[in-house]
């Protein structure tokens, strides 16, 4: 009984009052998609394990709902078109907000 009370006293309160620290540097977060010329889109699309990154006629489309943030596309990409951030906040209300499209041949 007393060892239990002593442990509770020693540990104290661990609840984080003001949330929550930001994600650590290595965290694999949201993928950002921009249009860049001479990007090897076919290889990036083939590297995606879930099919979240796909090509529709002349547009490249990324579906965040299916993205498991593995980072494969970022590794294979030969330009800055695909980058990975440490953002973990991707919740949306409408499904259409989970899609992002860029024109294949547009240069930023």
């Amino acid at each position: 009984m007393f060892d239990m009370l002593r442990k509770i006293w020693q540990v104290g309160t661990v609840t984080e009052k003001q949330p929550f620290e930001p994600a650590p540097k290595k965290y694999r977060g949201k993928i950002e998609l921009t249009a860049q010329k001479n990007t090897n889109w076919e290889e990036c699309i083939a590297a995606c394990p879930t099919g979240a990154l796909c090509m529709n006629v002349n547009k490249i489309r990324l579906f965040y709902g299916n993205c498991i943030q593995c980072g494969n596309c970022v590794k294979i990409c030969n330009t800055d078109a695909l980058t990975q951030t440490t953002d973990c906040y991707q919740a949306v209300n409408a499904k259409k907000d989970l899609f992002i499209s860029v024109d294949k041949d547009e240069e930023k």
């Binding site: 442990k7 540990v11 661990v14 994600a23 650590p24 290595k26 965290y27 694999r28």
Partner: peptide, 19 residues
């Protein structure tokens, strides 16, 4: 106590590997 220690270990995992 078990849940607290587990959470600290999960945070260690995240710092080491990102997941």
């Amino acid at each position: 106590q078990g849940a607290r220690m587990r959470e600290l270990l999960l945070r260690l995992n995240e710092e080491l590997t990102g997941h």
